[in-house]
Design a binder for these strands. Structure first.
Lengths: 342, 342
DNA sequence: CTGAAAGCGCTTACAG
DNA sequence: CTGAAAGCGCTTACAG
């Protein structure tokens, strides 16, 4: 089956391509009779406009690009879900790429999307990202651009984030409020802003409660994996047998801790309390149920797309757009792993 | 910054557009001197070919479409990962759409991708899908097409699947081998082929072991959720207090069962053994650790893309392509939730 | 109400 | 080795 074109319809009907095009787009200056004829023939031929030609003419593809560190990740798959859903509602499609936490790959993906001429780009940075040049390129090309979660602070784009400092402070405060004072922190890598902010939040909570900060209680993930949770749990118990609580950068790591403690028979929270971050689905079905910080991942996706859409609309109409930063709410979810100390 | 074009480069260099195009594509019939001049100016102007124009000329977009029931799903996010990774390796981008388990939405998404003129389509059907017309449309338009996991048997396309009957039979056999004989099955909805096949596998295992089939031990999920796992666990214990094992259609449901049993103090596997399906990450960190069937989700994605690529290449060269079905291996993962009965 | 024409930016068969 | 020309399929400003 060859694809029908405007030309074909025009020839069959003995009218011009212009009129066919107008009829299909319901322009007011086409007679009803012509419109009917065109529309019914188009339906019969199963006509659908060639999007390649439309893209070229209109200079937009109704497609956006999304770059995230990893798809298989409860947080990110929820964000994707929010973005895809909101995009669809507005007639946009989403191309998804992963950076695999590699700066080099992230740069390549950005270049790909620029070449593809997507209408806009949404990104959450890789853990390695400590260089802005590829992001500056997006800005320089005036491509609508939103960063979420793991952002480059200094790049002037719209951003959707949570208050990581405050959220982490609240998590640690929750441990303290429940009677745990000697608290270790398994932090994220050194680059990402959110790992830095959560670490600062941890320190602030200690400070507010007059607990001296002890650098030897801080452990730094390289890859932020389940296995690192296991390894650091072991390490922490070796270094600080009297530790009372652990605050992990994210649930996956906390689950590693919990899994190790369960396996070797360390009671949670009786011997050590554990709190994670992100409220992965998993955390509520573990034994013990894991306390964590709820992060509105789906909403983060929806909001990111909405901001991008605003900017894309301005871009199309050549109206200036001022990037905005939106901060979403988090809250501590108290579960068994941090029950009050007796 | 306005985007550079071939025309611009040609004018600046005082040569023709044709020559510029050829130089950039490294045609052999362009002088080295010209090539150098073109390439260096292109670099200077930050030239990247307008993909909209290229698409229109070459009639391909190096983009494929993927439709799945749900993104936030350990199995599907792993498949996505496999597809995106393999696509990238071959210079293809992936547009992802969800059907949200709705046939109507699935049809809409197929129409979207056809309009978009993607080079190929990969799909896993929604639970509601009991109508083929949209899939036939893909075939009729000769768009390269691969189905995976939840497939329409009668549609003549390439397919990537597991042997659901055998895998389910093995799961139930594992329960029986470990001493559990009164086994309930929480099955999937009535439409999906894989739910049907797993149910058949369950029955076959019983038959082989001379255990009479009892329809009242079969419970049918509508949505295949965590909550249904909880609800059916409760129901099963009410209907059959002497049940010895439960085989759930997928880990998410099995986790619901496990969560309910943990909460009300039913011991697994001492009182009831539980086995799931899919080997979600979660299953290995629960208490007790959940036995399940490993399904090679990432590989399923990679294989699906490879098959699609083969078909796209034939399509481009107008060579006929014969759809193939590839069956991937599964294996039972024995963990605590099905330890040998004492 | 209808249509001729230009143009989006590229690729490629063909001529010289 | 270089380039004029056609054409991919559409949209739209303009003329009548």
């Amino acid at each position: 089956m060859k694809e029908a074109t405007l030309k074909e319809i025009a020839e069959k009907l003995g009218i011009s391509i212009t009129t066919v095009s107008k009829a299909l787009k319901d322009y007011p200056d086409v007679s009803l009779k012509t419109k009917d004829a065109v529309i019914s023939l188009a339906k019969k031929l199963n006509y659908s406009p060639n999007s390649f030609a439309v893209n070229l003419r209109t200079k937009e593809s109704k497609t956006i690009g999304l770059i995230i560190p990893e798809i298989v990740h409860h947080f990110f798959s929820n964000v994707i879900n929010g973005i895809v859903a909101e995009a669809e509602k507005n007639g946009y499609l989403v191309i998804i790429l992963q950076s695999n936490e590699s700066l080099e790959l992230e740069k390549k993906q950005v270049a790909l999307l620029i070449n593809k001429r997507v209408d806009g780009i949404i990104i959450s940075l890789s853990n390695e990202s400590n260089d802005d040049s590829h992001l500056k390129e997006i800005i320089a090309r005036k491509i609508p651009f939103v960063q979420f979660d793991k952002i480059a602070k200094l790049i002037h784009s719209s951003k959707v984030v949570i208050n990581d400092q405050l959220a982490a402070r609240n998590a640690v405060q929750h441990l303290i409020d429940n009677g745990y004072r000697k608290i270790a922190h398994i932090r994220g890598p050194l680059n990402p802003q959110n790992a830095i902010d959560r670490f600062i939040g941890y320190k602030k909570a200690l400070e507010i409660n007059n607990i001296p900060f002890d650098a030897s209680l801080v452990y730094t993930c390289e890859k932020v994996t389940f296995q690192e949770g296991i390894d650091f749990a072991k390490q922490i118990m070796a270094d600080h047998p009297d530790v009372e609580g652990i605050f992990a950068i994210t649930d996956l790591v906390a689950v590693g801790v919990l899994s190790y403690f369960n396996d070797i028979g360390i009671k949670i929270p009786e011997q050590v309390a554990v709190i994670g971050f992100s409220n992965w689905f998993m955390s509520r079905v573990l034994t013990p149920k894991l306390s964590t910080v709820d992060q509105p991942s789906h909403e983060m996706g929806v909001t990111s797309f909405k901001l991008l859409l605003e900017e894309m609309n301005c871009h199309k109409k050549e109206i200036p757009f001022t990037p905005r930063t939106i901060e979403l709410e988090t809250k501590v979810i108290a579960r068994e792993s941090t029950f009050k100390k007796k």
